[in-house]
């Protein structure tokens, strides 16, 4: 049975086992302290703060690729499971209830925001890569605006050619009324976030409906335009998903630093007033 497990499945099992062991060890420590000096809040608080500090070091590790500090993928695994551990300790620490003071409520919310953004990051980093690959051509994020502009120029050339050769304005009117806007900026961001192709399907359907009003020679150009619409949709999809994959850290990391700062203040106050 074990031999049929893939590398990733084995790693997941081992890491999950380690997480359970860490939680169990923490729970035992809590019990010991609870029966002893009654400083469980200090133990869970210190563990939580220490764990968050270590989790935040991952960002520093990324800035030092040439220093032998284990592979980034090892850090990622540690980050994921230590993150889950921090969530468990957090609920031990807060006792599954909202705190009283305003500062503590803010800290509570910031922690949840960090944890949720982390979980969201984990989910999108597992879902979006394959979606990006399956949807269309793999593109480099920074090149997408240039490609979009190029595509719009190509579409305009097709429209001009169509007008010149067929003397019909069906496509030109469609371009002016709908396609110009579609090709000029990123569209359908929310739909792309959830993986819906509804918008592009609607647009291609609308374009196909135009066939009945076209001469045969114009339909050739329509087919080219439809290909461009699909290419533009892929550009938007790549830009949206790659953008989210790149920029979710701009939420997660600043929140983490806020959390550390607030956590430090909270700890100092707790020690000072208890």
């Amino acid at each position: 049975m074990a031999s049929t497990l893939t590398f990733f499945s084995k790693r997941r099992l081992i890491n999950f086992g380690l997480l359970l062991s860490a939680v169990a060890a923490f729970w035992v420590l809590q019990e010991i302290y609870a029966n002893g000096i009654h400083a469980t809040a200090i133990l869970s608080g210190a563990t939580l703060f220490g764990t968050c500090l270590v989790l935040a070091l991952f960002n520093a590790r990324k800035k030092l690729p040439f220093i032998p500090l284990l592979k980034a993928s090892t850090w990622t695994q540690f980050h994921i499971y230590a993150g889950w551990f921090a969530v468990v300790v957090f609920f031990f620490h807060t006792g599954l209830r909202l705190p009283d003071g305003r500062f503590e409520i803010a800290l509570y919310i910031v922690f949840l925001a960090v944890a949720l953004s982390g979980v969201l990051g984990l989910i999108i980093s597992r879902i979006y890569p394959s979606r990006l690959r399956l949807y269309g051509e793999n593109l480099i994020y920074e090149r997408i605006p240039g490609l979009r502009q190029q595509l719009q120029t190509d579409v305009e050339k097709i429209i001009w050619k169509s007008v010149n050769e067929t003397k019909s304005f069906t496509l030109a009117r469609m371009y002016e009324s709908k396609l110009k806007d579609y090709f000029s900026t990123k569209k359908n961001t929310l739909l792309h976030l959830v993986g819906s192709e509804e918008a592009v399907n609607d647009l291609t359907e609308e374009l196909n409906q135009l066939q009945r009003y076209m001469v045969a020679s114009e339909r050739v150009f329509l087919a080219e335009i439809i290909e461009c619409v699909k290419a533009k949709d892929n550009l938007d999809m790549q830009a949206t998903c790659q953008g989210v994959l790149k920029y979710w850290l701009f939420i997660h990391i600043p929140l983490t630093f806020s959390l550390l700062l607030m956590g430090l203040l909270h700890g100092l106050m707790a020690l000072a007033f208890n």
Partner: peptide, 26 residues
Amino acid sequence: LDRCTRCDDCIRACASAHDNNPRFVR
């Protein structure tokens, strides 16, 4: 590509080890 999140950490690491210019294209 089903695991690559296009984060470009590889590109940045390469650049930092080589005259601020990555030595490959993703």
